[in-house]
Write a protein that binds this DNA or RNA. Sequence first.
DNA 1: GTCTATAAAGGGATAGAC
DNA 2: GTCTATCCCTTTATAGAC
Lengths: 231, 231
Amino acid sequence: MPAAPKLSKRDATRENILTSALKLFRVKGFEPTTMRDIAKSAGLSLGASYYYFKTKEAIVMAYYDRVQAEHTALAIPAMRKAKDFRARLGVAMHTKLDIIKDDRRLLVAMFRYGGDPDHPLSWFGPATKKQRELAMEIFEAAIGDEKLPKDVRMLAPRLLWTAHMGMILYFLNDRSAGQKKTRALVDGGLDLLVQAFSMSSAPLLQPMVKPIRSKIVKLLEEAELVESSKS
Amino acid sequence: MPAAPKLSKRDATRENILTSALKLFRVKGFEPTTMRDIAKSAGLSLGASYYYFKTKEAIVMAYYDRVQAEHTALAIPAMRKAKDFRARLGVAMHTKLDIIKDDRRLLVAMFRYGGDPDHPLSWFGPATKKQRELAMEIFEAAIGDEKLPKDVRMLAPRLLWTAHMGMILYFLNDRSAGQKKTRALVDGGLDLLVQAFSMSSAPLLQPMVKPIRSKIVKLLEEAELVESSKS
DNA sequence: GTCTATAAAGGGATAGAC
DNA sequence: GTCTATCCCTTTATAGAC
């Protein structure tokens, strides 16, 4: 661990609030924890807490920024040591679960405004853009130089990001011990996915696969779910 | 239109509140509309409104019950007239969009607690079970007697329900005029889906397809995303 | 059973003083 | 930057009118 960087007073207070809030969220859940609880636990007034975090959800956002940074720091080096594509994908997904494993109660808040395009915390809005990009970089790295058709290569990071969102949704609802059902689903899902990738580039299957691939690409481009390749 | 069924006073008042609330939600959105607004607009006291709807979300739930009933009433007869599987699927999806087309602002409230297993309005909870089942019955009917492998046949309604949830999520975020991007995505998506179904049962492809199918079934059963077939 | 009126608990968010 | 006071809201509750 590097010498703890001297935190400005501002950052120290922020950190203090964040830590207190996460502790409470983990124990009581997101909704039952009030900003008054958080302020008290951090030894601050309610107003001061709002000075640092404009909304309760903003605290969860700050937590999630940290998750993303941690995920990058953990997954990228570990993937370098992984022996193949399948292994890299496993690392990408499982390290994410390792990081959030105790935080099901608080992650629900992240899913709250996904469907609401008018909300600043929408999944597709600018407030969450950096998080999306960071996450997608990890999947980018997981693919690495795996040999894939160009269009599949282009789609893959977003596909993996979407699968990873689904994984988190399943994880939130997974009451099995240690969320082992999620772990199993990830492993089985990735096996299938890798098989699909390899089929997508198998030379013998190209006559059947290629027109399907281009239909998919066209559909997603028109839906603006991926950026158009010709622009 | 059949002679308006005589509503009990209770039902008339409920209806009145619901109508007033929906009007406000459509104009102002879900969150900015207060129960006070709704009560005033319905010409009732705040207490009376709460007498009929315990929470603000309960109003949206009542709306969604109505959507489901309407969807059944609209889609089932229309599907009988449709000429084939693809057409029935198109009817199932597009009639849903027809019904909710002006209600993007209020449907966001339905997505709010989807990821939260502790919330009564969770997507997977008992409060929303009847809605899920009603929706799945429609997809059941859309499949009809289409010739499909037994395992695919079993999975298909849930697959379609999931796709339909994705459609709604896209729809909520679709700012194109008349949400025509959603319509196009549905059409293209269904074309691909039907192609996938037909490949799943094509005799020539069975050697390749069958092991994949059983892997998928096993995975979903273990994840309890479908009920086990052997029980 | 249906409703009004009213109060009050409790929480998110903000204004403005220090 | 930090605090107190305050606003407005959801929700619960109560007492009583019809």
